[in-house]
Lab assay of single mutants.
Amino acid sequence: MQRVNMIMAESPGLITICLLGYLLSAECTVFLDHENANKILNRPKRYNSGKLEEFVQGNLERECMEEKCSFEEAREVFENTERTTEFWKQYVDGDQCESNPCLNGGSCKDDINSYECWCPFGFEGKNCELDVTCNIKNGRCEQFCKNSADNKVVCSCTEGYRLAENQKSCEPAVPFPCGRVSVSQTSKLTRAETVFPDVDYVNSTEAETILDNITQSTQSFNDFTRVVGGEDAKPGQFPWQVVLNGKVDAFCGGSIVNEKWIVTAAHCVETGVKITVVAGEHNIEETEHTEQKRNVIRIIPHHNYNAAINKYNHDIALLELDEPLVLNSYVTPICIADKEYTNIFLKFGSGYVSGWGRVFHKGRSALVLQYLRVPLVDRATCLRSTKFTIYNNMFCAGFHEGGRDSCQGDSGGPHVTEVEGTSFLTGIISWGEECAMKGKYGIYTKVSRYVNWIKEKTKLT
Rank of each mutant, 00 (worst) to 15 (best):
R226D: 05
I275V: 08
P12C: 09
R226S: 05
F123W: 09
R298Q: 05
C97P: 02
R379T: 15
M6S: 09
N343Y: 03
E98H: 09
N306V: 08
E67W: 03
D110P: 15
E259Y: 03
D33W: 04
K146L: 09
T445D: 01
F78Q: 15
N42P: 10
K260P: 01
V227F: 11
R404A: 07
E76P: 15
N306D: 13
Y161I: 00
G439C: 13
V374R: 07
T190G: 10
T287C: 08
S187Q: 10
K446C: 10
S204G: 05
L32G: 15
R62G: 06
C128T: 03
S156T: 11
R43G: 12
N328T: 14
K311C: 04
G442E: 06
V273K: 12
V227T: 10
A337W: 02
R191N: 12
E72W: 15
V296H: 01
E286Q: 04
S182F: 05
V92A: 11
T386N: 13
S70G: 14
F251N: 07
G409H: 14
N245D: 06
S99E: 11
I428R: 01
F388Y: 14
A265P: 04
Q216R: 06
R180S: 04
P375G: 14
N5S: 05
N245W: 05
R140K: 11
G94C: 10
D198E: 10
I454M: 11
E129C: 06
V154R: 07
S220P: 10
F360T: 14
S107C: 06
A207D: 08
T133M: 13
S99D: 09
N127Y: 12
S169Y: 06
R162A: 06
A164G: 09
V353I: 14
S423M: 12
A207R: 04
R75K: 13
P101V: 15
K45P: 07
G439S: 15
Y330D: 05
G432T: 10
C178M: 00
Q167K: 03
V4W: 07
I7F: 11
Q57Y: 04
C97I: 04
I15Y: 03
H415Y: 03
N104T: 04
K440G: 13
C18Y: 02
T332S: 14
T332H: 09
T458H: 01
K457Y: 12
L367K: 07
N127A: 08
K39L: 09
S411W: 14
N306C: 05
H267Y: 02
D249V: 08
P239M: 01
M65A: 12
L460G: 09
E270S: 03
A317S: 03
F55K: 10
P101M: 11
S406G: 11
K387Q: 15
E86L: 09
R75L: 06
K293E: 09
P12T: 14
L244H: 02
Y201Q: 14
V359D: 04
N306I: 07
Y22L: 04
I136L: 08
K109R: 10
K51N: 11
Q2G: 10
I454Y: 01
I300G: 00
E73K: 05
L319V: 13
T276I: 08
Y312S: 05
E323F: 14
V419Q: 07
T422L: 06
C335N: 00
V263R: 01
F224Q: 02
L383W: 14
S204R: 07
P239E: 00
Y352D: 05
N80Y: 05
S354W: 04
H267K: 04
N343F: 03
F424H: 02
Q167C: 05
N452Y: 11
N258Q: 02
P375V: 05
C128Q: 03
F196R: 06
C145I: 01
S365Y: 14
R404Q: 03
I40R: 08
W261E: 00
Y371K: 10
E142C: 01
E142R: 03
L244C: 02
C69R: 06
Q167G: 03
K347N: 14
V257K: 01
G105E: 08
G349I: 02
L325P: 00
N213L: 08
H289P: 10
P177C: 02
S114Q: 13
D249T: 12
C119Y: 02
K51C: 08
G363Y: 09
H302G: 01
R294I: 02
T218N: 10
G409D: 13
E86V: 15
H34I: 05
V326H: 14
A337T: 03
K455N: 12
M437L: 14
E286K: 08
D212F: 10
D410E: 15
N452T: 11
S217H: 06
H361L: 13
K234A: 14
H415L: 07
E281L: 12
C157A: 01
A436M: 14
N80R: 14
K457C: 12
P12R: 08
